[in-house]
Amino acid sequence: MPSASPVTATETLPLFPLHAVLLPGAPLGLRVFEPRYLDLVAECGRLGRGFGVCMILEGEEIGAPATPAAFGVEAMVEDFGTSREGLLTLQVRGARRFRVARTRVRDNGLLLGEVRWCEESAAALRPQHAAVATLLAELLDKIGGEHPDLGHASANRRLLEQAGWVGWRLAELLPLSDDQRLALLQEDDPHLRLDRLLHWMDED
């Protein structure tokens, strides 16, 4: 008798639905003022963990709990401060992708997701995608920022050989719609993500 397939355990993750898509490795600035999200930040700081960011499919960022997309990305807090209006500001960075199995709402209105983490492939870039890696290196050289001289430094050059990393950085920098970025989040294969990006660039 064949053995049953193993069931991947879920983990409870507080969710911060937004009209935006956070990508793995990408930075995002947030302003926090609703009590439920202030509670979220305090809890995550106390436990040393992140929270989930999902694109809103229905609803708004404030008020009643919104309907989130089934895929999202874990947000890790890198810095925080206070705005001129006295609001808490956060600088977060995308980490692991996840899929939401189900949601529930706390008494304070905070949305909790039972999530399963998505496996990330360490696949190498394929020859047919070499042009997009070259484009990415040129974009990063122009804007500087976190990855200056990426195309010239041998240690950093290895990042341009990773299909997943190249895809996420292009998705971050190119003028894509939130729906397009969400479609990439839903795709496990980094080569297929690059195929989609090439297709969208050809359409332009």
Rank of each mutant, 00 (worst) to 15 (best):
E120A: 10
E11Y: 14
D179W: 07
Q128E: 15
G52T: 05
P6A: 14
Q180T: 11
D202G: 11
L110P: 06
L139A: 02
A64K: 08
R36I: 13
L28P: 03
H129D: 12
A155T: 07
V166N: 01
L184N: 08
E146K: 12
I62C: 09
A171L: 12
A64G: 01
A95L: 05
H199P: 00
L170G: 01
L150A: 08
G167E: 00
G72V: 06
A42W: 06
L28C: 10
G52A: 04
D39S: 13
R157H: 12
A9T: 13
A75R: 02
P14Q: 06
G86S: 12
T82H: 08
E119G: 09
L47S: 10
I62L: 14
G164E: 09
A95V: 05
L22M: 09
D149F: 07
P35I: 13
A183R: 14
A4T: 13
L38Q: 14
V100R: 01
F71S: 09
K142Y: 01
A163D: 04
A75F: 10
W117K: 02
L194I: 05
P14F: 07
L110Y: 12
A163M: 03
G94Y: 03
P148R: 07
I143Q: 13
L13H: 03
T103W: 08
G145E: 13
D178F: 07
L170C: 01
S83E: 07
E114N: 09
C54K: 11
E85V: 11
L110N: 12
V7C: 05
L38V: 11
R84H: 11
L197T: 02
V166Q: 02
W165I: 04
E85S: 15
E34F: 12
R46Q: 15
Q186Y: 10
W168S: 00
R36N: 11
T12R: 14
E58I: 05
R116E: 15
L23Y: 01
L57R: 15
G72P: 01
V41D: 11
D107A: 15
C44R: 08
L160K: 07
V77F: 02
P68R: 09
A171Q: 06
L194Q: 02
E138Q: 11
Q91M: 14
D202C: 11
L198M: 13
R93F: 05
L13V: 14
M201N: 00
E34P: 09
A70Y: 03
E78Y: 10
A155Y: 05
F33I: 06
V115A: 06
L184Q: 04
G29E: 13
E161V: 00
M1P: 14
L194C: 04
V41I: 15
P27K: 04
L192P: 00
G167V: 00
Q91A: 14
T67W: 07
D179S: 12
T89Y: 14
S121L: 02
E61I: 05
P17E: 07
D39H: 14
V53N: 01
S83W: 03
R96N: 06
L47R: 15
S83F: 06
K142A: 12
L135N: 00
W168H: 03
G144E: 06
Q186K: 14
P127Q: 10
L13M: 15
F33A: 10
